[in-house]
Amino acid sequence: MTTGVGPPSIAHELGGLVTTTVTRDGRQRVIDAALAQFAQYGVEGTSLQMIADAMGVTKAAVYYHFKTKDEIVLAVVSPAIEQLVLTLGEAETRRGRATRARAFLSAFVDLVIGHRVLLTLLYDDVAVLRVVRTERPDFDQIADRISAVLVGPDAGPAEEVASAVALTGIVAAAASPDFAELTDAELGAHLLDAGLRLIAPRRRR
């Protein structure tokens, strides 16, 4: 888990999961610029021209790498999805639901804190979800696997809602300026504790 204080800047975030090389090629520059624009204006509020302007290039230069905005959206969020799948797969190998749930939620918290902007887009922007569900038919299956890890494969509506609230709540709280005074370690501990309490099995009365 990282140890900085408060939500990082987009530039800082691009130095991790999204940006993979010091000398970025044109395609990666488009992805970086798009993430910054999406974070500020949302996917629907961002045009290819805005991305080009942010890069200081023509729109034709953007088209050279991506033919549509949907292609850019998918390229922006794909690293987060792949990391999510990797985290999920590792958690699924653990024995016992409680152990699997803690393993996944702990790794999820680390991922969210390290890449707040990207995960907020993935979980909060309906345009992103539309693109992902269209381009990645396995996305709903991934969501089902996450729910199974957190609350079990035979969970009822109440448990599934708790799972969804835990995930979206972690993303929202991590991005909130209200907790900027907390270190990443402190915030991560609180997020994990809250998430585990939300998905804890209910006692029968």
Score class of each variant (00 low, 15 high):
A39V: 13
A39S: 11
E44K: 14
G45A: 08
T46C: 12
L48C: 09
M50E: 15
M50P: 01
I51S: 04
I51T: 07
A52C: 11
A52T: 13
D53E: 15
M55E: 00
M55C: 10
V57L: 11
T58R: 10
A60W: 12
A60Q: 14
A61H: 14
A61W: 02
V62R: 14
Y64K: 14
H65A: 13
K67N: 14
T68W: 06
T68Q: 11
T68M: 13
T68I: 09
D70L: 00
D70S: 05
D70R: 02
E71K: 05
V73F: 01
V73M: 05
A75N: 01
V77H: 02
S78H: 04
A80Q: 04
I81P: 02
Q83D: 02
Q83K: 14
L84K: 08
L86E: 09
L86D: 06
L86V: 07
T87N: 13
A91I: 03
E92D: 06
T93A: 14
T93G: 04
R95Y: 08
R95Q: 11
R95N: 11
R97E: 01
A98W: 03
T99C: 07
A101F: 03
R102H: 13
F104E: 00
L105T: 11
S106N: 11
F108C: 03
F108Y: 15
F108V: 09
F108A: 04
F108I: 02
V109N: 10
D110T: 09
L111Y: 09
V112W: 01
I113P: 00
I113Y: 08
I113W: 13
I113E: 08
G114N: 02
H115R: 07
H115M: 05
R116N: 07
V117M: 12
V117Y: 15
V117F: 15
V117R: 15
L118C: 06
L119G: 00
